[in-house]
Design a protein around this nucleic acid. Structure first.
Length: 257
DNA sequence: TTGCCGATCTTCT
DNA sequence: GAAGATCGGCAAA
């Protein structure tokens, strides 16, 4: 399957974002391949966009945004989640498109197992989501050494996970695809790359955009700056699109004297 | 179904 | 030291 050419990403992120809807992001690992059809994205304009990570200039974290288009910018947030962007335009702009949600179209069982693994751990005693993923290959490590009781519990979680929730949300999408900081800077336009973006094809070999459904746009989720800019794009009526949450200030933790 | 809250740690001021 | 492009659990409606 041929990845999307780099010229596709060499445009302003606001133009690239809606065009990415219906395209497929796939990640090939030793465990197998998981492919997700993108249903929701957000555009970030770089140094001119106060909501962008690139707004305050280049840092070690966002360095990939200041590089060539067609590469993945993966960041770690809230102490436990990864999110993935695709870099657009050129190095001077540092613009990117955040991948917010998608529909798993290949490797659903593997995606379900990964999500159940995390979901199960999150509810248990020791959630290592931050540590076990940072720059390391965690594939298969969690299943080793588990007792039968927790395996039963994990399989129940797996069965209960709705298909539409597998990649519904930027952090869930990364979980389903097993994306972490080790993929920061990965080239998504090269056929040999483990992380690739391609157009979805029907059996007849024609490109489609999710049944030609309407694309809608609205304000971006969870951003405090430029919250009114309608640069979030999604496929109208798709159940895998994440719920809209406006930005709310975090409350300070109350410390009893 | 909705809304609140804690978890957890990197990044930046 | 505070905030953050989030998520899942739980209580209340």
């Amino acid at each position: 399957m041929t990845p999307i050419p780099r010229e596709f990403f060499a445009r302003p992120s606001v133009q690239v974002a809606p065009d990415l809807l219906g395209c497929v992001l796939e990640h090939e690992t030793a465990e197998g391949l998981v492919a997700v059809e993108l249903t929701e994205v957000e555009a970030y304009a770089g140094q001119s966009d106060p909501a962008s990570h690139a707004y305050r200039g280049r840092t070690a974290r966002n360095a990939v945004m200041f590089g060539p288009p067609g590469h993945a910018y993966v960041y770690f947030t809230y102490g436990m989640h990864f999110c993935v962007n695709l870099v657009c335009q050129d190095a001077d702009n540092a613009s990117a498109v955040l991948l917010r949600a998608g529909r798993v179209i290949e490797g659903e069982e593997l995606a379900r197992a990964r999500r159940a693994r995390r979901t199960h751990k999150a509810g248990g005693d020791h959630d290592r989501a931050g540590q076990d993923s940072a720059g390391q290959d965690s594939a298969g490590q969690d299943s080793a050494g588990q007792d039968s009781a927790s395996q039963d519990s994990a399989s129940q979680d797996r069965a209960a996970l709705a298909t539409r929730d597998l990649a519904r949300g930027p952090a869930r999408l990364c979980q389903a695809l097993d994306i972490d900081r080790s993929l920061d800077g990965a080239d998504v336009c090269t056929a040999g790359s483990p992380l690739r973006v391609r157009r979805r094809q029907t059996g007849a070999g024609t490109n489609v955009r999710s049944g030609q459904r309407n694309i809608r746009s609205g304000p971006r989720v969870g951003v405090s700056a430029a919250a009114d800019v309608p640069w979030r794009f999604w496929l109208d009526g798709d159940p895998t699109v994440s719920a809209y949450r406006p930005w709310v200030a975090r409350r300070r933790k109350l410390v009893t004297p």
